[in-house]
Design a protein around this nucleic acid. Structure first.
Lengths: 207, 207
DNA sequence: ATAGACAGTGTTTTTTTGTACAGCAATAGT
DNA sequence: ACTATTGCTGTACAAAAAAACACTGTCTAT
């Protein structure tokens, strides 16, 4: 949609208001009355301009034949949170090819806000109640404090672990005695914190 | 809103469809065309009847002056799923006093559909990844099959357990070796299945 | 039995609307 | 300088739409 002039935006807003108030779109005369125009052509030419710019669609010959073409830009809040599946080495976590779908969940159901849902593989966080297949709600941030559950990227893989740090040493602890804790040295080992686990969504019940 | 006849419901549905398709309400003629009436009065009298019954509101003298008065009864899908906290003995689980809030989550995020969220207390289902404070998405049903996680009511309390049944014997298994399995005999012990666990929402991470 | 809702056909009249045409002034781009 | 776009006034007319009036039936509660 091309950019609108202030007057055109004003008219578009009026139409929107009119529809929510009355339940049907305004006629040219309604628009004129509302804005104080004296010629039926005033509204008409504005509508034509708005149609040219793709803001609305007119149905010729039809009374009140105005349809708003809002199609609000598709953001998370509209198609839901992206669900991230297997993350390939080296590519950003939110890359298109990792998005396995969308979940119509409120991002602000969690606090801090969730930015995406990561499908967890494996049972390494079992004792923290995070099972294989669960969707971990992740808040994007690079800051992590001791004891928090983080989404970390180390050279080739993206993993969910409990974070602990002391100076340049970092421990990524699994919550399952069958898995061992990773010990890293920030001076040699690459480590990126991709985000913080802020919640969990499970679909169905485990066996 | 009074109850509508089949014909009236049909017309109401048509109007709804027309609006979503075109962006504006139909004229009497549009309705006649769609339903094959030959007299403009057919649509008119139906509209009058629908207005009398409170299904819609007509604006006299205005073309397409039809406004639907849906005000769909406030259902889960609008204010979100109810979150059920402590359930008192003997009262229905969805009673007002148990509702601790609402969660703006899509009920159909889970399958089968979730009807409410039950705040889980205690760690008896720990090894199924259900921790204290988690919200269990529950689908209301009285049917349960072996191995499913159920919300069960036995005399005084409501509890979440894994269900197993053989004839008139029912076992409610905790998923934590520190808790013991309840064994019931349907011939003496009262047992109501309130619903099935179909998912889980956790807010924040466990320590 | 009888009044009232339901479900229509048909005709006519009056508004309500859309739309084309003729201008005018200011502004912005090429 | 010239052309297009914006942003209007004003007139006129035809099509679209609402609405009133007159009738015919079938049900269904009272």
């Amino acid at each position: 949609m091309q950019s609108l002039t202030t007057r055109q935006q004003e008219i578009l807003d009026l139409i929107r208001r009119f529809i929510t108030e009355t339940g049907y779109p305004p006629t040219r005369a309604d628009i004129n009355r509302a804005l104080g125009f004296r010629s039926p052509n005033a509204a008409e030419s504005h509508l034509r301009a708005l149609e040219r710019k793709g803001a609305l669609q007119l149905t010729p010959g039809s009374s009140r034949g105005i349809r708003l073409l809002d199609e609000e830009p598709v953001t998370e809040s509209h198609q839901g949170l992206p669900i991230i599946g297997q993350v390939a080495a080296g590519s950003p976590i939110l890359a298109e090819e990792h998005v396995r779908g969308h979940c119509h969940a409120a991002a602000d159901m969690f606090s801090p806000r969730a930015d995406y849902l990561l499908a967890v593989r494996g049972m390494s966080m079992r004792d923290a109640g995070i099972l294989d297949g669960d969707l971990l709600a992740v808040h994007r941030t690079r800051e992590a404090r001791n004891g928090q559950i983080v989404v970390a990227r180390l050279q080739d893989e993206v993993t969910v672990k409990r974070f602990r740090r002391d100076g340049h040493r970092v421990w990524l602890q699994a919550e399952n005695p069958e898995f061992r804790t990773l010990e890293l040295d920030l001076r040699r080992d690459p480590l990126d914190i991709e985000g913080l686990g802020v919640g969990l969504i499970r679909n169905g019940t485990p066996l």
